[in-house]
Design a protein around this nucleic acid. Structure first.
Lengths: 192, 192
DNA sequence: AAAAGAAATGAACGCCCGTTTAATTGCAAG
DNA sequence: CTTGCAATTAAACGGGCGTTCATTTCTTTT
């Protein structure tokens, strides 16, 4: 019978993914070797292959989990209230969720080109689904100034995701101040 | 006397940089080998070292030229007219300039972590200078809704640079339509 | 205590890396 | 036509790469 509790493999698997996440984000997928990941976990390189078929799958799984979590978490948060409240709620959610997962966000934007075509298509579909979420909210808000909805969606998402590139904990503005500023800016972009 | 005209080195240098630019953008700095760059130029790997001291300098030079060109080109374009016209002009300039240099833009955002600390600091200084350009314009516009100027600057730049991630020639919207939409959106963000 | 089998090791596989250097090529000046 | 030198080659350097696999270690169940 297989070992079922306290086994090392139930710990090592997550450790491998955590190490890969951190190292990929810091140095880039191509610049990180399986031996580096193994060293971070405290294991030899060969042992990693009990937890992933290869390096590429390791990357894909990190992105996949990240995108799935993004979609399901929003689904839980979304109260489906009146359009304007939903918009504010989305802005807050996006910023805070992304700030809490800086490494995964970084990887998901920077390492798309290292995915196989099939894996890329899968990630891209989830990204499109997420964009659709915001687009639907914008359409429901329907500000009189709202121009092309798809273009506005992409503009707002770029603006929001951009926070990750400069926000630092303990900086001049805290999270709440940032959220409130962006809520106000997004409202103005949308024209409501 | 040295050969002064029609020499091969006056051609090979630019070819090396062009090949590196394209390959770095497509596959990432770490994933591209000196042998790949050499093959693209039609030369052996060793020959590259007449045109760059090492791979890292090749990357740095590409970014440096890109950032310098960004700053000097804006300086030429900037008419220094009334604030609102300058803002519109900046939006137009940023979008079109970046769309014309997709590879260099991509590299300059994605490969920052592959720079040595000294090289990084130099690129970062130029980026800060560029941000300052927009911040000054925003302050001059001084919309009543304008919140934190630095935060607004970063939000607008993220929004504008984001165009590069989705715009495709021959798509649903042409450049002029995109520019006009963004001019309108940026005006609203700034509150003027 | 013995058996079972999962987890991990460590060595090996063939291959590619960035960079250096002596030797060669080929153009242009004299 | 010779000479000089810039441009390039080809080979080599030590080292790291992703991945595989026979073997060993370790933990749990019986």
């Amino acid at each position: 019978m297989a070992r079922t509790s306290g086994s090392s493999s139930q710990k090592t698997g997550p450790l491998v993914r955590a190490a890969a996440l951190r190292l990929f984000a810091q140095h880039g997928f191509a610049a990180v070797s399986m031996r580096q990941i193994a060293a971070e976990v405290g294991v030899q390189a060969g042992a990693l292959y009990r937890y992933t078929p290869d390096k590429q799958s390791l990357l894909f799984e990190l992105m996949q989990v990240h995108m799935e979590e993004l979609l399901t978490t929003w689904a839980e948060v979304d109260a489906g209230a009146e359009p304007l409240a939903r918009l504010d709620s989305f802005v807050r959610f996006h910023i805070l969720h992304h700030l809490d997962r800086a490494d995964a966000v970084f990887i998901s934007y920077m390492e798309l080109r290292n995915l196989t075509p099939e894996n890329f298509a899968q990630i891209e579909a989830m990204r499109a689904e997420y964009e659709r979420v915001l687009e639907d909210i914008l359409l429901a808000c329907g500000g009189e100034g709202l121009g092309d909805p798809k273009l506005t969606t992409l503009a707002v998402l770029a603006m929001l995701t951009g926070v990750n590139t400069w926000y630092r904990e303990g900086g001049r503005l805290d999270r709440e101040a940032v959220v409130q500023s962006y809520v106000a800016m997004v409202r103005r972009v949308v024209g409501v």
